[in-house]
């Protein structure tokens, strides 16, 4: 980025996003918890989707046949908090393979949904997860469009937004989230984010030693201009094949500048109007 003049810099950094630590320092120290989803281990059994629906008592999405491989769910939504993506990849040499990934809310370290929420319904809970208190959600729908991963949805039934809670209730009782508990291959791992990152990096090294050189981590470290994700992934192909953005953008970056431009336009037009209105008599 070009060097910015000081006032522009101030505006660019106005309204800084909130960072993870919200818990009171008086509280007993808890590590930030997250998911590491290793797609090389995923067998596409959808047990996570089912376990999530059951534990969180989410409504069904209806019976749709999409024709998109074995994926009839499509995407995460207000009623689907785990979604198993199936992508068929056919390479030039005639071989084919499946990409399978259990998608989930990324629990971003600087979550745009949390900044967008006008009621403070979206918060970081004591486990460092982005938690939506849907009882005080007003249904304005701003988080839906703020999320660069398209995770949140607003339910037509109750008019509230809903998303993955990382099984806050289970975590509070010392249990792991339902999806991680049920995963038969340990593709979904749950734990303190720092530990998961170490583990994930070892896993990538291991895979690369075995010749699977395309393995890499998505969201374990910060992106070009987006924070790291507390629910990150090990992928083996371009993120777009998993319906993930290659370089997510923080929608609120430069908000101060955009306010300044708008207000300045208003003041300028008012000043011109004052001239016209004052000219007569």
């Amino acid at each position: 980025m070009n060097p910015l003049t000081p006032p522009l810099d101030v505006l660019l950094n106005a309204f800084p996003p909130r960072y993870t630590p919200v818990p009171d320092p008086e509280d007993e120290p808890t590590a930030r918890m997250g998911f590491f989803t290793d797609t090389t281990l995923c067998i596409g059994c959808k047990a996570c989707e089912v376990a999530c629906k059951q534990w969180n008592q989410l409504p069904s999405d209806g019976l749709d046949f999409t024709g998109n491989s074995y994926d009839n769910t499509g995407h995460l939504s207000q009623s689907t908090w785990r979604h198993v993506a199936f992508k068929e990849r056919h390479s030039e040499d005639g071989t084919s393979r499946w990409l399978m990934m259990s998608d989930v809310c990324k629990h971003c370290e600087e979550a745009p949904c949390l900044q967008a929420c006008p009621t403070g319904s979206l918060i970081y809970n004591e486990f460092g997860d982005v938690y939506l208190q849907n009882d005080i959600c007003n249904g304005c729908g701003y988080c839906v469009v703020a999320c660069p991963f398209g995770v949140l949805g607003r339910s037509d039934e109750d008019g509230h937004a809903h998303k993955c809670t990382m099984c806050y209730d289970r975590q509070s009782d010392g249990m792991e989230p339902a999806c991680a508990k049920v995963c038969p291959t340990n593709s979904i791992q749950f734990g303190p984010v720092e530990e998961l990152r170490e583990q994930a990096k070892k896993r990538v090294e291991q895979l690369q030693e075995r010749g699977r050189e395309s393995a890499y981590l998505y969201g374990a470290d910060a992106f070009e201009e987006y924070s790291s994700l507390n629910a990150f992934f090990l992928l083996e192909d371009h993120p777009n094949h998993y319906n993930l953005p290659e370089q997510p953008k923080h929608p609120f970056k430069g908000q101060g500048v955009r306010y300044a431009v708008g207000i300045a336009a208003g003041v300028a037009l008012s000043a011109v109007s004052a001239l016209f209105l004052a000219r007569e008599d």
Binding site: P251, R258, G262
Partner: peptide, 20 residues
């Protein structure tokens, strides 16, 4: 204009002209 520009929607996202 600022409201719609602070979203991930490609047509709106971070478009500074929308507000003026």
């Amino acid at each position: 204009g600022v409201l719609v520009s602070c979203t991930a929607i490609p047509a709106w996202s971070r478009q500074a002209w929308l507000s003026p």
